[in-house]
Design a protein around this nucleic acid. Sequence first.
DNA 1: GGATGTGAACGACTTCACAGCG
DNA 2: CGCTGTGAAGTCGTTCACATCC
Lengths: 229, 229
Amino acid sequence: MATRERKRRRGSRQAPLTGGDTRLSRASVARFSLYLRHLEMFGREGIETVSSGQLGDALRITDAQVRKDLACLGSLGQRGIGYPAAELIGALRRKLGIDRHWPTAVVGIGNLARALLRYRGFPQHGFRFVALFDSDAAKVGQRVEGLPVHAPADMPAVIAASGAELGIIAVPSEAAQETADALAAAGIRGLLNFAPVVLRLRRDVNLVSVDLAVQLEQLAFLVHLAGGE
Amino acid sequence: MATRERKRRRGSRQAPLTGGDTRLSRASVARFSLYLRHLEMFGREGIETVSSGQLGDALRITDAQVRKDLACLGSLGQRGIGYPAAELIGALRRKLGIDRHWPTAVVGIGNLARALLRYRGFPQHGFRFVALFDSDAAKVGQRVEGLPVHAPADMPAVIAASGAELGIIAVPSEAAQETADALAAAGIRGLLNFAPVVLRLRRDVNLVSVDLAVQLEQLAFLVHLAGGE
DNA sequence: GGATGTGAACGACTTCACAGCG
DNA sequence: CGCTGTGAAGTCGTTCACATCC
C-alpha cells in the first residue's frame, strides 16, 4: 500500500454543501433566486398555484429540472395540481437564508456602489446597507443615499457598531485584496467582490465574485463563434 | 416504433459550441478570460514562461485543469518548461475573439452604465463604447464620458452609423425586454443584460446575463449555510 | 387527465495517473 | 528530472421516462 497521502489541494476543495436535510447542488441553489423572483411575479398576478412546466418556461429550463430542484425543499407539490406559490416562496426564502435581514457594508463609493445602493431589488430581499467606506478623503463624511461614508481605518468600529455581516467590494483591483483582508478582520462573514482579482480569504469568510470584464468577454466569444460560420 | 417526435424543447437547446478545430467546453471558455488576465499580470512582472501549476495556483484550480483547458489552443506548452506567456496570450485573445475591436452600445445611462463606461478594463480588451441611449429626455443630448446620449427612437440610425455590434442593457427590468427587442432589431449581435429578467431573443442574438441580486443571494446562502453549523 | 417525484441513462466537467518528451 | 498532453476514472448535473397520486 503506497502512502495514500493525498496531494495537497490548494485552497479548500469545494465544501460538500450539505443543505441540512437534502443534498442540494450548487447549480440548484443558483436557480433558487430565479424561481423566487418568478414566483413573486406570479404572485403579483394573483396566481396561487404554479406547475413545474410554467416555472420551466419562465426560466427557459426543463420541467424535470424544476421538479428536481424543488424536491430539495421537501414535498411541497401536489400531484395533478402543481406547487402552491406562497408556500414555495417561503420555503425558498428559508432555504436561501433570506428570511431575515442581512446588514451589508459597501467599500468603494463609486458609480458601481451608487448603482447598487439605489437598486430596489436588494432591500426587497432583505439586504440592508448599513455602512459605507471609501479611502478618498474627499468622500469621507459625505452622505450617499442617506448613509455617511467612513474612512477605511474606522472599519472595525463601524462594522461592529452597524452589525454588518456581508461586504461588497467595489474598489479598484489594486485595493481589493487589502479591502477584503480588512473586512474579514472586522468580522465580515461574506464578500461580494466586483474587482477583477482572485481574492485569498480565510475559509470561514465566504466569497462570491462578479467579474464584469469576464462576462463581456464571454459575450464577445459567443458572437465571435456565431459570426464565424 | 413509436413516433419519435422529440418533445419540443422550449427555446433552443444549448448549441454544441464547436470552437472551430477542438471541442471547447463552456466551462473552459469561462476560464479563458481569467487565464488571460493573469498571464497579462505575469507578463508585466517580466515572466516569460508559466507552468500549469503557476496558473492553477493563481486561479485556485488544479494544474490538470489548466492543461486540459490550454490543450484546446493547440500544443503551445513545452514539456519540462511550461507555456510561453506571450504566445498563450495571443492564442487566448484569438480564441476568445478579442483580437479585434468590439464597438459597443449602452442603453440606460444610470450609475451602472457610468461605472462600466469608466472601467478601464474594457478598452484594454478591445471593447469600445460607441453609442449611448436613454429614454429620459433630460439625459438625451448630454455627454457622458465624452459620448452623446441618444433617444431610443434613434437606435436604428445611431447603431448603424456607429457600427455597434454588442449592446449592454442597464435599464430597469420593466424596460429590459423592449430594449432588447429594439437593439436586436437595430442589428446588434450580442447583449449583456443587467436587468433581473429572463430575456427572449432571436437565436442569432447572443445573450449573457448578470443578475446582481442573484449573486448577493448566493452569498447570503453560503453564509447562512456556514453559520448554520 | 394532469402534475409530481424519482431511478436510471446520459452528458458534461474535473481529477487522476502516467506516458512522453525536452 | 520537470512539465506537458491525454486516456481513463470519477463526480456532478441534466434529461428521460414512468410509476404514483390527486
